[in-house]
Design a protein around this nucleic acid. Structure first.
Ligand SMILES: NC(=O)c1ccc[n+]([C@@H]2O[C@H](COP(=O)([O-])OP(=O)(O)OC[C@H]3O[C@@H](n4cnc5c(N)ncnc54)[C@H](O)[C@@H]3O)[C@@H](O)[C@H]2O)c1
Ligand SMILES: NC(=O)c1ccc[n+]([C@@H]2O[C@H](COP(=O)([O-])OP(=O)(O)OC[C@H]3O[C@@H](n4cnc5c(N)ncnc54)[C@H](O)[C@@H]3O)[C@@H](O)[C@H]2O)c1
Lengths: 264, 264
DNA sequence: TACCGCTTGTGAACGCGTGCACAAAGTCAG
DNA sequence: CTGACTTTGTGCACGCGTTCACAAGCGGTA
């Protein structure tokens, strides 16, 4: 079993414990150390990667509205970030702007897609076709973005064979075969918590390298598998924390409050 | 309209870029100047808050299995984090451990619940009862954790009046009345992207202080409203990035690969 | 009571990410 | 061609969060 590691993503900034070395800030910008070549991609901070995905969506919307160029100021405002942060994020992937003008929308889209690996399609398999699994399978936003949902799995015999969102549900025993046939690279786990680890193991055996986990459990995976989790209960609890903090602040500063809401 | 701010949560560590005034950076990095009393709650880093929610779930599971005390080593392993990090996280909320022994499970649960504001129930309203909204409304995990889903809204006349997950769907025009009556403190947006900002504005007008947003748009909210977003497309794209990075690494080190999968 | 082993709690160092501020580099007008 | 203006790209400093390492503290034992 791989050493217990934090599951990155999902909630809060969860930086992985320094994968290795890399990201060297040598005084002298050493040109060639070991791999050296496309080393740049590795140097993009995880937080920046997530934001690049947001920029990409904003850029696509701008492109549809006919925008040709965009300044860091405009783009950052639309993406809800600081303009300096945006420029730094873009600098991680190269210099594609024109000083005094801005960035060419199409160029930026291409480069971000390249860095994010979106030039290739990534087939997605969803396991656990319950409430959430149905929603994911029926969602039209993924295929359009290069993530075709190409396999569905469940353990329930009543569900196996039933088409959901256009494709038939398979039994989980078929995970290895179907995932291999359809070249699935991302597995989504939407099963009840107790089943999540088992399902995860099967996906990993089937060669799936990336997993998006909705079940509120910490998954154990080998080092070469990337896991991100989406934990809605945690999201709600973080919001709850802010309500409480605000209520405390109000109480401390003498403001009245009703049912946790500050009435100023 | 409030100044454009980063939407925290969801993906990566997204610290808001200095809201406006307030949040002064005094030469001496004094954390708390005036209230001082229960100021501790404010000092808990956002990242730690998210992890506390995870610890809480693990602790609840342990309690059900009859555990009385737990060491930082055990708890951290179960939560998938470093034990030092766990102890530091717990230290933000006080000293409730016994050296040489560990933490009493019930005490820890109580204290974390207190800090997260879970001693009070937080009514949740879901807006947009489509694929995702249905899943959320039917999900049994929220009410059990102190987050009763107590109001549903949609614009579709065919949906209004229909019961979903036990409660009837209301028209969005009723947001102010119903949210007020049922003391909703958290609003969940699961509408199509174009409708999200409008829905958000209505929720804010209705006095909702916290919003969990599933629509892939950057919401504009006043400073006193807390927004967290869950962006599944971004999650997939971050995973895609890792596939690409890994493929590059393999190519650089001479490893063979098939369809983006490294064959060692 | 004195000792020993175990675990907490935290001071301090480190590293990463953010934001500032500005030089470099381009455009455009005249 | 020159000079004014605009916007990028980034060096640098700061602050937050993570991690290490260990003193302090507690329970058990003789
Ligand atoms: N529905 C939500 O809004 C929501 C919100 C937060 C978290 N979650 C989490 O997402 C997961 C799914 O939630 P849901 O509401 O869709 O649950 P659900 O009970 O509606 O669906 C679970 C599905 O998984 C299938 N399943 C059970 N064991 C399986 C196995 N071993 N292999 C494959 N499939 C199996 C079941 O047959 C069922 O179809 C749960 O872990 C839940 O905690 C859901
Ligand atoms: N379904 C998923 O798995 C998924 C995944 C990622 C993101 N999302 C996002 O979540 C949101 C909802 O997705 P979905 O698949 O449930 O969409 P959906 O189309 O199934 O449902 C949207 C619902 O919102 C309602 N609606 C439309 N305008 C409204 C308004 N002004 N006020 C209130 N309700 C309104 C519609 O009547 C419909 O019932 C979208 O923004 C989508 O991008 C969904």
């Amino acid at each position: 079993m791989a050493a217990q590691r934090g599951q990155r993503g999902g909630v809060g900034g969860d930086t992985p414990p320094a994968p290795t070395a890399a990201e060297i800030t040598t005084p002298i910008p050493r040109v060639a150390d070991v791999p050296a070549a496309r080393e740049r991609a590795r140097a993009v901070p995880e937080a920046a990667v997530a934001r690049l995905a947001v920029y990409l969506r904003v850029l696509s919307a701008m492109q549809e509205q006919g925008a040709v160029t965009v300044s860091s100021e405009e783009l950052s405002a639309a993406a809800g970030v600081n303009s300096a942060k945006l420029r730094k994020d873009l600098s991680y992937i190269g210099s594609y702007g024109t000083r005094g003008v801005g960035y060419e929308v199409t160029v930026l889209i291409e480069e971000i897609e390249r860095i994010l690996g979106l030039t290739r399609k990534h087939s997605v398999a969803v396991v656990g076709i319950g409430n959430l699994g149905h929603a994911l399978a029926n969602y039209g936003g993924f295929p359009g973005r290069g993530f075709p949902v190409s396999a569905l799995f469940d353990v329930d015999p009543d569900l196996v064979g039933v088409p959901v969102g256009g494709i038939a549900v398979h039994h989980i025993d078929d995970i290895p075969r179907v995932c291999s046939e359809r070249e699935v690279s991302i597995g989504v786990i939407a099963t009840p918590p107790p089943a999540a680890q088992t399902v995860c193991d099967r996906l990993v055996e089937a060669g799936v390298q990336c997993i998006l986990n909705f079940a509120p459990v910490v998954l154990q995976v080998p080092d070469h598998v990337e896991v991100r989790k989406v934990d809605l209960a945690v999201e709600l609890q973080v919001l709850s924390f802010h309500v409480a903090r605000r209520a405390d602040d109000a109480a401390a500063t003498g403001g009245r409050q009703v049912n946790g809401m500050v009435v100023s």
